[in-house]
Amino acid sequence: MYLVVSIAILITMALALVRALLGPSVYDRMLAVNMFGTKTVLLLSVIAFLYGRPDFLDLALAYALINFVGVLAVLEFFQSRSIRRAADRVDGG
């Protein structure tokens, strides 16, 4: 059963990768990265039990805790970029 679930997650990862490669906008790619992060946490949890090594769950916990920092960084990046662009426009005009 673990096997079935992990295969479902792997297929979903492949689908997300296709979305990341197709784009078309950068946000679609970001969405795919985000999906990939959650799917990785699930995959690691399932595989930890599939292998019978539950002490490996630390890794899934690490991802669950810090994976959203990257998305927040993207939000911050766009925010400061739009502010910078607005400032440039004021300076230029």
Partner: peptide
């Protein structure tokens, strides 16, 4: 963005 996916895949691969 794709580097992020690369890193996740790499970690999963090491784990496997």
């Amino acid at each position: 963005m794709l580097t992020g996916i690369f890193s996740l895949l790499m970690a999963a691969n090491f784990f496997v």
